[in-house]
Design a protein around this nucleic acid. Structure first.
Length: 586
RNA sequence: GCGGUCUUAGUCCAGCUUGGUUAGGACAUCAGGUUCCCAACCUGACGACCCGGGUUCAAAUCCCGGAGACCGCACCA
């Protein structure tokens, strides 16, 4: 990676992206709209490859179930989940300098009202509190306008009636939670299991900036992993326990210290820095994912979220951050321990039972003394009062009743004198086969567009004044370029033939026959094509081709008939470039 | 939302101060020629003044409004 690039990478990449069709701002012909982007041919493939990498890791390797649910969501869902309350921010604006502040933050800071209390306050209450404590604009001491709510969810109407409020989902997670019962059935009613959803989400950001980093419409990858809080052990932990997690802890952050603690997954758990084994597992997997899309471990870290930074549902949160050239440390994934908050909320609001049944290893048999009123005896004695006496006896503590009989020969139920023959005191067996509980959830959540941008930035390099996009071979939007050295003598036909063969083998292949060979290599480098295969006169006479490596610009010579097998191995990372043929001396 | 800087072909930039014929260059793209293993060369083609309004005989240029971009502040569950 070239760290001495002169212009900043954000600018260079945005320019390259527009020129080569990775992505650009949407609606340009109408002047553009902030926070919306379009992906071009190269970008779409790269983004798909990154998302498929995520699928490969989580769906194929870990066995997470994938699902897809609607973006438009009935109001009730986000009322239950707490988003309608929490995605609203009370804001005040200074009449003098027009600066805007979070009203709840002002109350916390200047009136020492806790964030929990501040969140519960209505707009009127906030205004009264601001006046009562004489809070003015911290910048210019000006007065504030009345507080207003800013809702960061997109709101719409479902169907023709204005009563049916719908929201554009700000996360894909709720789409999973609301379908929990069916998904649990798909998982054959066994914990733990996870569900992932990759899809669009909408957040009406106040001012989206920074290109792909903050969008109003973006692709989110939410993975909800459900487990039994009494069995929090992660069966896959062994695979990652020695993986190093670079963590920036709350306590360091509060001291304004940026030093990360580099500890293994095992240590982080032992020292209770990460509370949940599964959360630690997913953090380790997230680190691996980023390495696979081209971000070296030393450019990654996890930052523990401070209490007031955490989402309303989260008990412990870490953000995975990647160091970017212009924006510094930037969040690419969030890891939240959502406990049973979401399922609990939906259960309460919808009335659906979202608990799971857990069978005990052995049924629990409990034997207890029970007082059973013998109504046949009670009736004649207490007449109309018999029912009431029966009730009193049923509620009484059997031990106390028994002791009273032994000591006094009778038991006083309220004012009624009960004799031993009026009741049956015997031990009763109850068998409990299991219990019902709400699973806990850990959630890794990735921003697909950010992963995409990060992949571009880390692939970006300059060699001999040429831009080379060194994507890892597993995510490169185009895998192979095929070039006839010249457009005559049958070289073109041979190239076309090879392209067809390789395409049928399942590779993404591009044929480029215009311009000098050097120009075509340069084009390919910019598009990040890892391998270039050139058809020359020796191809016609000896059946060999040259294969060029994007990053080293080295070439090897290989038999054309061996290509499919060699290339499959290369893209499966079983062999490296040097193994593709014999090195051509330059 | 505020303040600063900015917006001209696919991309990057010049022109604007001082209004005036056909808005200039580089790269990219396409066609033809030539060359043939790292952006060679020649000929040609394609292609732009962010939007709206105003001033003026005349606006890329001056004025007003809007949209968008970047930086800083604020916001980002």
């Amino acid at each position: 990676m070239d760290d001495t690039t002169k212009i900043d990478k954000f600018t260079a990449i945005n320019e390259l992206a527009r020129r080569r069709g990775f992505f650009w701002n949407s609606y340009e012909i109408y002047g553009g709209a902030g926070g919306f982007v379009a992906y071009g041919p190269l970008g779409t493939r790269l983004k798909q490859n990154i998302e498929n990498k995520l699928r490969d890791i989580f769906v194929k390797q870990v066995g997470i179930l994938e699902m897809e649910s609607p973006i438009i969501t009935p109001g009730k869902v986000f009322e239950a989940s707490g988003h309608v309350t929490n995605f609203k921010e009370p804001m005040v604006e200074c009449v003098k300098c027009n600066k805007r502040f979070r009203a709840d933050h002002l109350l916390e800071e200047y009136a020492k009202i806790s964030s929990v209390d501040a969140e519960k306050m209505s707009l009127d209450e906030i205004q009264q509190a601001l006046e009562k404590h004489g809070i003015k604009c911290p910048d210019c001491q000006g007065d504030f306008n009345p507080p207003q709510q800013f809702l960061t969810m997109f709101i719409t109407t479902i169907g023709p009636y204005s009563g049916a409020t719908g929201y554009g989902r700000p996360e894909a997670a709720q789409g999973i939670f609301v379908e929990f019962n069916r998904l649990y059935a798909m998982a054959r009613e066994k914990l733990p299991f996870g569900v992932i959803q990759i899809g669009h989400a909408l957040r009406n950001e106040i001012s989206p900036r920074q290109g792909l980093i903050r969008l109003r419409e973006f692709t989110i990858c939410d993975l909800e992993f459900f487990f039994d809080p009494e069995e929090p052990c992660c069966r896959l932990l062994k695979e990652v326990e020695n993986e190093i997690l670079p963590i920036l802890l709350c306590e360091s952050r509060l001291k304004c210290c940026e030093d990360t603690l580099n500890i293994t997954v095992r240590e982080a758990l032992d020292r209770k820095i990460v509370k949940s084994e599964w959360q630690a597992f997913f953090m380790a997997m997230a680190k691996k994912l980023l390495v696979e899309i081209g971000v070296p471990p030393e450019k990654q870290r996890f930052i523990e979220k401070l209490t007031w930074e955490k989402a309303h549902y989260s008990s412990q949160s870490f953000d995975q951050e990647v160091l970017l050239d212009r924006h510094g440390w930037t969040e690419v994934s969030g890891h939240a321990y959502r406990t049973d908050y979401d399922l609990g909320s939906h259960m309460k609001a919808s009335g659906a039972d979202m608990r799971v049944f857990k069978e005990y290893a052995k049924p629990v048999e409990t034997e207890q003394l029970a007082v059973k009123p013998v109504m046949a005896k009670l009736g004649p004695v207490f007449k109309k009062e018999a029912g009431k006496v029966g009730e009193l006896l049923a509620k009484a503590d059997p031990q106390v009743v028994k002791a009273a009989f032994e000591k006094d020969g009778f038991y006083m139920a309220d004012t009624y004198k009960v004799l031993p023959e009026h009741v049956d005191i015997s031990s009763q067996k109850t068998v409990e086969r299991g219990k019902r509980f709400i699973p806990h959830v850990v959630e890794p959540s990735f921003g697909s567009d950010r992963l995409f941008y990060v992949a571009l930035e880390y692939a970006y390099g300059v060699k001999d004044d040429r831009v080379v996009m060194s994507f890892p071979r597993s995510i490169a939007p185009t895998q192979i370029g095929v070039y006839p050295l010249m457009n005559k003598d049958g070289l073109e036909e041979k190239a076309l033939e090879l392209q067809k063969v390789l395409t049928q083998e399942g590779f993404t292949v591009e044929l480029d026959e215009t311009g000098s060979i050097g120009r075509r290599y340069a084009r390919a480098d910019e598009a990040g094509i890892p391998l270039g295969i050139t058809i020359d006169y020796d191809t016609l006479s000896e059946g060999t081709v040259t294969i060029r490596d994007r990053d080293s610009w080295q070439q090897v010579r290989s038999q054309i008939k061996n290509l499919p097998e060699l290339l499959h191995k290369y893209f499966q990372r079983k062999i490296n470039f040097e193994n593709l043929g014999s090195l051509v001396e330059s």
